[in-house]
Each structure stands twice: as structure tokens, then as C-alpha cells.
Amino acid sequence: MPATREPEADLSVLPKADGSARYSYAGYTVTGSVNGPIEAQRRDEHAYEAHVDVIVRPAAGVGGTRERHLETTLQSSLTQLILVKNFPRSLIQIVLQVESAPENDYVNTKLVQASLNFAIIPALLQTAVLALLSAAVPMRATATSAIVAVVSQDGASELVADPSPREVEAAQSVHVLAFTSQDELLLAESEGDFTVKEWDDVYDTAKRICCQSGATKGESIEMVLDEKGDNGPDMRQFLRSTLETKVVADLYWK
């Protein structure tokens, strides 16, 4: 099946949760729910801030260490975004249910032990941010995320944004970066061998995908157009237009 080229999102898809979002992009579809602030269990209670609980559930099979790893990564990023100090002793619970991930048609995967790789982080993070916005949980900023792979071809390395599973497999290194809406680096995870130069290039590419919104930021649009080829979608603009639809629908009576 062809992967969706344009990101798509629906907000408040689950009527029972405080906030929810369904996000699909590049073959990944994730549904996320947010409940909070709610009562925290004793062991999770912090005296001065809310506990952010992230649960990642694979589409098939039981979660394992990889999911736990993704959860910790996302938890530390999201705790930075949410104004946790506003809700001491409470819990903000984020459940991310993977619905589908791009499949490699050339390999039959083992499924009983789910193995989410970290190429899914952008989809998970994006879903979580959208669900948090839908739940109106107070946040410091929003965030956007991108994945970039370094693929070496004939001695020269090339950067691929949103690589397919096959490209991830063949890549020398894969990097996931996330930026807040204030252009600060929020998350950087890398896998594989790479040089400092490559990382700098990756950083620039990811930043362009996450933070381009040239017009609103006052940068010249030509700068974006100058770059050759596929820049990937403008994630920040996407986030804004998704939310705009929601707000307009919510405030139809105004």
C-alpha cells in the first residue's frame, strides 16, 4: 500500500477521553488519547509537579523493552512541553496506540514480540502533541519532529528525510530530531555511525522540516525554495492548520 505523502490528522476522535488525535504520515498511523490532570497513584505522585505517563502500545504483539525505551524518550520530551508545575500531585496520562506501521514487503516480520524501531518516534510525538492540544492541557510550546537517514551511495553520503523501512535498514545512520515551536532542540536520538559534519547536516535538514514556516517566521521564502528537491512537508504549518480547523469547529457559535 502506498504510504501517505501528506500528513493527516483528526482531533478528538475518541469521545470518552479528555483529548485524542489520530495521526498518519509516511505509513504510520497512531491514535493517541490524553486524560488529565487526574489523580495520580501514590508511587507516581510528585509534590510539585504533574507526572506525565506515556504508554506506547504496538499494533500487534506485546510490548517489550523497545516500547519501554520509546516511552521514556517521549516522556522526558513531553514533560518539557507540558506545564507540569500547574498540576502538582496529579497525573497526565498519554496512551499512544500504533495502528499501522509501514511494512517491508520484502521481509516477513516476526510479530509476536513487537519491535517498534525508533523511526516511529516522530509519528508518536506528533500524535501526543496533537492529543495534548485537543485535551487543552496547558503547554509551554508545541513541537514538531522529523526523521532523517544518512544513506551512503557510491562513497558520497546523502540525506533522506522520512525514509522507508528499507532505506532505514540500508542507512548508515538514522536520526530523529524534534524542535519546539520556539525553534529549540527538544529531542535528538541517533543510531549508527556518523561524523560531526553529517550530524550538522542532519540537524539543518531536520530543522528546516520542523521549523520552516518561512512566512510567519519572517525568513525569506526563497531560502526554502533554494534548497533542491523534496523538503518534506511543512510540519509546523500542518499543526497550525489542523488546530485551526478544530478551533473553528469548537467555536462555531461565535
Binding site: G19, A136, V137, P138, R140, L243, V247, D250, L251, K254
Partner: peptide, 26 residues
């Protein structure tokens, strides 16, 4: 002054108040 939620910024000059109108959440 920073917004913390997504919504519509409403400024009332008569009451010198500023707030964000939104729906949803807990």
C-alpha cells in the same frame, strides 16, 4: 505573555482583559 492552549485569542479593550477561548479538556 504566552498562550498555553490552542484557541482563539480574545482581547476586550473595554475591560482591558485578554483570554483564550477554547473548548474541551478536563
Amino acid at each position: 505573555i504566552l498562550p498555553t492552549v490552542a484557541g482563539q485569542l480574545v482581547a476586550d479593550h473595554r475591560k482591558t482583559s485578554l483570554y483564550v477561548e477554547y473548548n474541551g479538556g478536563r
